[in-house]
Write a protein that binds this DNA or RNA. Structure first.
Lengths: 337, 337
DNA sequence: CTGTTAGCGCGTTCAT
DNA sequence: ATGAACGCGCTAACAG
């Protein structure tokens, strides 16, 4: 790892001259340029970005904090982030929190001390602390997927409430009344919103809500299995389930299979979050799909704009449209063929 | 963003004293400690890791260069990497190359100038240049999944040839003879190895190989569709397909559906790479599954060991075991039920 | 057009 | 037990 000084010495010039040539800034003679360039090449010189970052207070690095890349939804978001970032010469650090506040705190410490230029945050909990902590250090932050109360911060997400309203409305129209909702953690905003959409659909239909049909858990397959089992123990049993994310729904379907219940003949299942086309042979679930890639991409572009121009525009809340796709996992009540 | 100097001034001490207190190195009086700590807290002081990195030539950052996180196999590898890294206080930069050599080169430039402590590389092409470029800068590197000729470098991967041998052997035993192999790019080592396993199975069974059944493409759904279509145009048509990774196999199955061919009744399909349990309701493919998470984890641990002790042990090539899982996508030839 | 000086924030070395 | 000076690698500002 040679330094600029070594290159300078070899080229018989001052370090600053090397800097000027390699960054193509300021003036220099063609002959000097050549000498510097060949010296740099001979020494396999690689500029130390660390030193430049220290000077410029800019690392060209972003961080993406999310719950779990292993979920295809987040994977796709991550890919959108990475693509947008790399197009602009930025690099992305990936951090999985597993919705764990402590892990998130640890990552924040590291990232802030590494002086990342911006953070894309999927808050482990819908509380303002994390965002405030970032903003206190004057680091740019954009929140993804979830709302956060009591702070001014850019957010890119989907209309969760509308989505679950659509799913619920769809099932109601199919004649279902006992619709269980398998939700994520109570501490996350999307859980509340999606629940609100569910309730709205019932209210608009002038139907009462049975609170026992509302089950809180986590966004995992295991919890999905568990919640579905729990739901099916209710009396009367639900005739339809709504999984609040893809993993929960997959878990639910696994649970139903174990109970020898067929979907959709015996019970309908609707879901939030589609699985990427590349992972399914034949799409099966009726879903509200969120544009994962676009969420990542849009959020990153917004973040980069903020970094380039910190106080240019007022805080934005960008709502991306979801897509409601009816497939085979839902069917009219009592229509067993 | 306050600096150590500002904290020092507020505490009425010298910067070095702040350093000593916060890093708990050297001597200081309890009273000083308290003054420093409260000053740091009041200013929300966050040490500048950039400056430390510059001094120590250590960034506590790794890079993971792979083809596409969007593939569940790589996602899982990435999660293994991230977990192992964060356990040791390291942070991971994620880079998607799409098997594109140019993108890989660009990333390498950035990563080397950012002085990452180590690189986990899934080479876009099975040539030594990238590895050599990294090693020339004395940056530690571990190669994942693929072999690279003509360099001494640590590698963590699976026995690809054995895996495809198993798949082929399985299909041969089921009575299949026209077995098409839908492969990845010719430039990647795993393609060759998996092809070798295919050929070995045929040779051991004293069966001739029809080269037209060997089709090269890319590790994508689109190419999988295309290759399967191409295969089915052969005369006589194959009775079984082997997809060289999960995406190719899914593409193949989609193509078969479009042709109104049922799997496994009309044609068997075997595949490399399982889909994670969390993404499937009912696993369908007969596969050779690679321990993706363990690959990531093991490679990272090896890399960190190298970073801690660069020349300790000789170069290692770690071969992780695969798992052969027979499911519903393959069945005996001519046994249409 | 090129070079000298200085400083980004931190911690090692050597003094006190 | 505490501090001053120096340097990690780079470049802006100024000088020549």
């Amino acid at each position: 790892m040679s330094t600029i000084r070594e290159v300078a010495k070899r080229a018989g010039v001052a370090p600053i001259t090397v800097s000027r040539v390699l960054n193509n800034s300021g003036y220099f003679l063609p002959e000097i340029k050549e000498r510097v360039e060949s010296a740099a090449a001979e020494l396999h010189y690689v500029p130390n970005q660390l030193a430049r970052s220290l000077r410029f207070n800019r690392t060209n690095t972003l961080a993406l904090i999310l719950s779990d890349v292993t979920n295809p939804f987040w994977t796709t978001v991550a890919r959108g982030v990475e693509d947008a970032a790399s197009e602009h010469g930025y690099t992305v650090m990936l951090c999985n929190t597993d919705e764990n506040d402590e892990k998130q705190e640890q990552y924040l410490s590291v990232l802030l001390s590494k002086r990342v230029d911006g953070i894309l945050l999927v808050p482990a909990r819908s509380t303002p602390e994390a965002v405030q902590r970032i903003q206190k250090q004057r680091v740019q932050v954009v929140v993804l997927d979830r709302t956060v109360p009591d702070v001014e911060v850019d957010i890119v997400r989907c209309a969760s409430a509308d989505g679950s309203y659509q799913l619920t409305h769809h099932l109601l129209e199919l004649g279902h009344r006992r619709i269980a909702i398998l939700s994520g953690p109570d501490s996350v905003s999307v859980s509340h919103e999606r629940l609100a959409g569910y309730k709205r659909a019932f209210h608009e239909a002038n139907l009462p809500i049975d609170e026992s049909l509302i089950i809180h858990g986590e966004f995992t397959v295991e919890r999905g299995i568990h919640m579905a089992q729990q739901a099916m123990l209710l009396n009367p049993a639900p005739t339809a389930l709504i999984g609040m994310n893809n993993f929960i729904s997959i878990g639910a379907l696994k649970a139903l299979q174990n109970m020898n219940l067929r979907c959709p003949q015996d019970i309908s299942v609707a879901s939030f979050d589609d699985l990427p086309n590349s992972m399914m042979v034949e799409p099966f679930f009726t879903v509200v799909a969120q544009p994962a890639y676009e969420i990542g991409r849009t959020a990153t572009q917004l973040l980069l704009k903020r970094i380039a121009n910190p106080h240019d525009t007022p805080v934005q809340s960008i709502l991306l449209p979801t897509e409601f796709i009816i497939r085979q996992s839902t069917q009219p009540l009592n229509s067993k063929p």
